[in-house]
Write a protein that binds this DNA or RNA. Sequence first.
DNA 1: TTTTGTCTACCTATCGATAGGTAGCTATAT
DNA 2: ATATAGCTACCTATCGATAGGTAGACAAAA
Lengths: 178, 178
Amino acid sequence: MTYSETASRILDSAERMARQGGYNSFSFREIAAEIGIKSASVHYHFANKEILGAALAERYTNRFLAALGEPADEGADEMLRRYAASYRKALIEDGQMCLCGMFGAEIRDLPDPVARQTRAFFVRNIQWLGQIFQAKGLGAEEAETKAARMIAALEGAMILSRSLQDDTLFDRIIEGYS
Amino acid sequence: MTYSETASRILDSAERMARQGGYNSFSFREIAAEIGIKSASVHYHFANKEILGAALAERYTNRFLAALGEPADEGADEMLRRYAASYRKALIEDGQMCLCGMFGAEIRDLPDPVARQTRAFFVRNIQWLGQIFQAKGLGAEEAETKAARMIAALEGAMILSRSLQDDTLFDRIIEGYS
DNA sequence: TTTTGTCTACCTATCGATAGGTAGCTATAT
DNA sequence: ATATAGCTACCTATCGATAGGTAGACAAAA
């Protein structure tokens, strides 16, 4: 999926808000005000909120995986380090939570298309990490479990580090995974 | 803090909604409708939303810790198992997320009194678990890190298991902590 | 001339919150 | 015993703000 300049700016704005406060924390009005158009014009690009929310999660997932590269490009340990570093960068450098971590927590309250895209984030990330763990010699099932465990640790580390306003806590929690 | 019958039912209702969709997912009107009073009467018991939210997090924290008992009552490993089991019960038996996990994720968007109570949940839980790890022979700093790591793993496991609608995933992720 | 993107203007529903009132209980003072 | 006063727990009615969403006009570009 490719987006126009305006559509991209809408997504940028919505993503920033959603990663701060979840699905109910971005609105057509606020997005419009931020990028200098009217809320009706936001509806032109994204007909309703569930379409916008689903697009948000889809673009986030694609960008996230694209930034990681193919799972086999380099050594397995280096890939794990890179994976953890991408969460670290989001939290500490960008000051934002994982969009799909937020959406995942409130998934029972989300419109179905948004929930589906949120699940896709975790499925694809478990696949990505699972390949790494398999490259390290683990069986498919165990690799998947370890992948899920690592993602859970990173999502949880974000929440605790953010809550306690202590960036170093993220590193201390993740120590050993990198 | 002790609450009247009605105040307790307000908190029960709000807690259930908040653990499903976060701070913006409960409203005075919806709570009132659920327990059969008017929204103005909810304001009688909790003057505004931040007071209600803070009371929610405070009661949740106190109940959570009370259910765990004193950290030294039994063997350290049994206490760790019990700690993980309390998250498991919430997720699988009650079908709910951790209230302060939800609030923690969106903490930057929360009114200050709610954010403070949310932080208190994590501080007190790290203290509780830290005592267990110290009883197992770890130094204070390392015990605190391991405590935070375990809480992060449990919060993250809830999000993934919930997102992927797979109860067994929670157990597989937590395997080894219990 | 059709499409694209934006606008004005509006809608209904809901939000948190407040004002003002009432029924019933309780405690004190006469 | 009775009147007075205050408190508790609710009510009706309403406020301004904001939510998501829609209809239709309009200008520029293809």
